[in-house]
Design a protein around this nucleic acid. Structure first.
Lengths: 404, 404
DNA sequence: TCTTGTTTGTTCAGCCATTGAACTTATAGG
DNA sequence: CCTATAAGTTCAATGGCTGAACAAACAAGA
């Protein structure tokens, strides 16, 4: 998603030095748990107060941060003026295409969700073109709504439940899409000049989770109709060679297991996918499966508890392999799994303890998603703002200082 | 291994700018397939000729690169003087502790192996202290041998078949070691002031493979008595949270499979470890298992071919999971697997094609290790030189320009 | 042999971002 | 009202890169 990550093979000139320190200061502003003063930023970053001052001035001029009213905080000495990420100006537009709904949200640079709208719409009954059109309408409304709050979207990211590569959606099984070209701004409707991007929903959800929790490294697993995943390493999303990393849904649990629609056998989805759990629990098809499972779990229904125990065991086996391979300390359960975690966790942790070779020295933690079902949507919007925060110089260069 | 990787949260001053460009220029010198001139480095790196000149001067003064005799290469114009990594000066000392041998080697900055010695010694009959002592003798000889060639080891790395964390070897199953403290220079014997480091052998082998082949991203799997692995992503070794990433040997193949000594069931080692293959092939225990397998394979022995086919299938299942998770394009087979690749590959590729969800768009390649059984040893030595090449400024700062 | 054209490598003034110290501003406490 | 303390700004100095001019080394042609 970042248009072009800074590469270590780039030559470094004076300007890139400033670029780096712009990002460094901005990072301190966003990461601090209390609006830091210029002096505090200087102390924390290792730069001098003089440098921080000029950099903060540049960020203020570019509309990326703002000064608070000077408030006397504590003790003697001249009180500092707190610096905060701008609550107006650039925003990120997140969009989500899922099986039976579309959603749009907007976040500002502080990470706050400033707009959110969901519309029920079954994509299986519509062509991709119709989906883009409907999504465009929602986006239009979002742009208008945030404009009233002083926000201007700097880009949009669309989350889709499928594999994205280059300029096509290779396949989105549950939408019934194959080889669908990525939408250009005009496909969404109005003549927007928004830079658009499309990415896998689980990947974006992992990103959203990373920003919501501050976790530096974790494996995110989202269980809905399909099972998706995303890997965050040291604060960075890990995409793999083609951006397809994290596809844990088709990891083999049992080489001789049941056939999977992907052509393989014994995939995790055949044990812990929504349909598999529903069938094992003896629930009716076509209903509100998640709600039924939660109800069954709460009421202690034996078939439901058994089904979740089996799913958790399979999840635990797959996650053990992932933890052995990646040596990753935390597993975040998202999507439906977040609401089922109480019944899934015992089996998952049992398998992790048994199958992860380093479990006795550094047991992996299992926790529920903090964002729940909004993770992908918010993650998509945050991907836009994060790109600005990660490389403010690029943003400032393309969009010169707004008229004051 | 790099004592302290450059962090993006560091402030950037003028000096770090020079540090970055020192590394940038040095990287161009080592990566070029022909000694580049200052002008060519400038063109390739984006720096100006003036800057490259001063940087090259600094590198020459520090003994990291050298000028070739100016040779008229081609066409008109003043011929450039080629710049090459120094063949004298700093060297890397690689050491390996394995079940039944110790080994030492030294490489120079060009990556060439300038010394290599292996000594049969069964660690299971000796204490760690005795092992360090014996290794120290080999190291002494190596230091003396390379000194005669104008090389001075700048550091040493020891490869061990076990899990290393902080300042202890947590466990090295096949050596029978548990909670062994990492050796300090004095534990090896003579009063050396060599900075020492210890790391997992498969991890280091992956690193060696990376430098030998130039591959940017791959999964390295080494099959010997145990199965180890290492992950290289975008040219960098991926260590995970504790440096334990790549432990593919205990990924679950079948949750109900045979018990493994690690306490789990159905681990890959139970299907594709040396002992498992030997037993399946009906070979006698205690012999030269690898040689027997290669012989059996060449002669078309049915039990041997069957055993290797089974091992390849299990490897394929485990690798499929890894590729699904990491979206990694290449799998490198090392250790004994390198010599058995002809009989393992068909089954591995069959499983990859069937089980990797993205196989039809981007099939993963399977190849044999280029370094074979020396991968860990050479990788350990290269880890030292690579640290210098990655951050020449640190080296130049600690070891000022040698007397000219 | 001499001249011309081309490319390499060096020199140097100019530029730019950071530094460190001095200075100004703003507060608390006596 | 004065002093101590801390925040923020100003400014000369420093270090590293750039660009242009220049010197050096070679090929090709006259």
């Amino acid at each position: 998603m970042p248009p072009r990550p800074p590469r270590r093979d780039d030559p470094v000139r004076q300007r890139s030095l400033r670029d780096h320190n712009l990002a460094l200061v901005l990072r301190h502003v966003t990461a601090a748990n209390r609006p830091p003063s210029r002096a505090e930023i200087a102390a924390a970053s290792g730069l001098t107060r003089a440098t921080v001052s000029t950099i903060v001035d540049e960020l203020i001029a570019g509309g990326l941060v703002a000064e608070l009213e000077p408030v006397s905080r504590s003790g003697v000495g001249r009180p500092g003026t707190g610096i905060v990420p701008a609550g107006t100006g650039p925003a990120g537009l997140g969009m989500e295409v899922n099986v039976d709904y579309l959603a749009v949200c907007a976040v500002d640079l502080t990470g706050a969700v400033r707009h959110r709208q969901v519309r029920r719409l079954d994509q299986r009954e519509h062509s991709p073109a119709q989906t883009w059109q409907a999504l465009g309408e929602l986006a239009d409304q979002a742009v208008a709504a945030v404009a009233a709050q002083g926000l201007v979207p700097a880009g949009g990211v669309i989350a889709v439940p499928g594999l994205v590569e280059g300029d096509t959606i290779r396949i989105a099984p549950n939408l019934g899409w194959q080889q669908v070209a990525l939408p250009r701004p005009e496909d969404l409707g109005g003549p927007r000049d928004l830079p658009l991007d499309v990415a896998n929903e689980a990947t974006l959800a992992a990103l959203g989770e990373r920003h919501a929790t501050g976790l530096r490294s974790f494996l995110y697993v989202s269980g809905e109709i399909g099972i998706g995943g995303g890997i965050v390493l040291d604060g960075e999303l890990f995409g793999g060679s083609h951006g397809w990393a994290g596809e844990i849904g088709h990891v083999t649990i049992d080489p001789q297991g049941p056939d999977c629609h992907c052509g393989s056998r014994g995939c995790l989805e055949q044990y812990a996918g929504e349909e598999a759990i529903r069938a094992a629990a003896g629930l009716r098809a076509g209903g509100a499966v998640l709600a039924d499972l939660v109800d069954g779990g709460r009421q202690g229904s034996a078939p439901v508890l058994d089904a979740l125990e089996h799913a958790g065991t399979a999840l635990g086996v797959a996650l053990s392999g992932a933890v052995n391979l990646l040596d990753i300390g935390t597993v975040v359960l998202g999507g439906h799994y977040a609401e089922l975690i109480d019944w899934l966790r015992p089996a998952i942790e049992r398998e992790l303890a048994r199958r992860v070779i380093t479990a006795r020295w550094a047991p992996a933690k299992v926790r529920a998603s903090a964002l729940g079902s909004d993770a992908a949507l918010v993650g998509a919007a945050r991907a836009v703002t994060q790109a600005i925060l990660d490389d403010p110089a690029r943003f400032l260069a393309t969009r010169p200082a707004p008229a004051v």
